[in-house]
Design a binder for these strands. Structure first.
Lengths: 152, 152
DNA sequence: GCTGAAAGTCTCCCGAA
DNA sequence: TTCGGGAGACTTTCAGC
């Protein structure tokens, strides 16, 4: 896939605010409204733009406790791995889950309301998944940066 | 802030797809178009919904190398901390940065094109920030789950 | 690829309950 | 908060370049 400078600028703008009208975008890009429309449709069709979403402030919905959990599996047979990944992905508190290199197998980002909810999550949900060997949790003291916009 | 079941369902829907029209939302929520409109405006005004963005597939824009970096500072005077946080937040490759509990001070999520770009980032950008004591990088082998939608 | 114009749909503002 | 109706803005299509 190839992007000219206009596509890059367009993606940059849409990643920051997708509620801009094509008219606003057209003046920022020095294009006609239709040209903007067609470029966006193309980017959507090609799957470059996968989705449009509303971002919500976790502070306002009582989900202001964030933790990262390292997880080690007891075994790494394909069965175990697939089952673990499926079950973890189904947990609502798990925002992100990555299979990573290093001492642990997985890194999870977990969002809950408070430490008590986190304890509840660990005891009743996470560690009730079979095949988990050990875990190591780190708590977020402060969010310094968090963006969904990837620089092009 | 208080959310009734309709608000919760509305936020759930908008977090997954913000391009739905108020008409579509109204039929899913059994409300009138205007009622949906006003609920959304209220949620925006209160700051619950902070933003609407386009999500893009990093695989399609040659940014498919993801790493997490632990960072330890040499000192923790306020000056050092503030300066470090400011400089890290300005790096385009850094998508997320958290001050965390545990052995290291910070956890960063970094997105670049490949290992070579990562090396470049580490040598020329990250470790050129003063006051960094030590770093420890983990590479993402596979993204098991990644969502922006917080469960209510 | 791009453009402007026309058609269709939606957002947003009413007055009323 | 809710509703339905209407003005105006927007998206989407089209013919032409």
């Amino acid at each position: 896939m190839n992007f000219d400078p206009i596509d890059k600028k367009l993606l940059k703008l849409l990643q920051v605010n997708s509620k801009q009208t094509n008219k606003e975008l057209s003046s920022k890009l020095n294009l006609s409204v239709t040209a903007v429309y067609e470029r966006i449709k193309k980017l959507e069709k090609e799957g470059v733009i996968s989705n449009y979403v509303a971002l919500i402030q976790k502070e306002k919905i009582n989900k202001n406790f964030v933790a990262f959990c390292h997880i080690k599996l007891v075994q790494h047979t394909q069965d175990y791995v697939i089952k673990f990944e499926k079950e973890v992905a189904n947990l609502a508190e798990v925002m992100e889950c990555y299979h990573i290199s290093g001492d642990y197998d997985y890194l999870l980002k977990v969002i809950v309301s408070d430490m008590e909810a986190f304890r509840e999550f660990m005891v009743n949900k996470l560690t009730s998944i079979n095949h988990i060997g050990s875990t190591h949790s780190m708590f977020v003291i402060n969010e310094v940066k968090h963006t969904t916009a990837i620089n092009m």
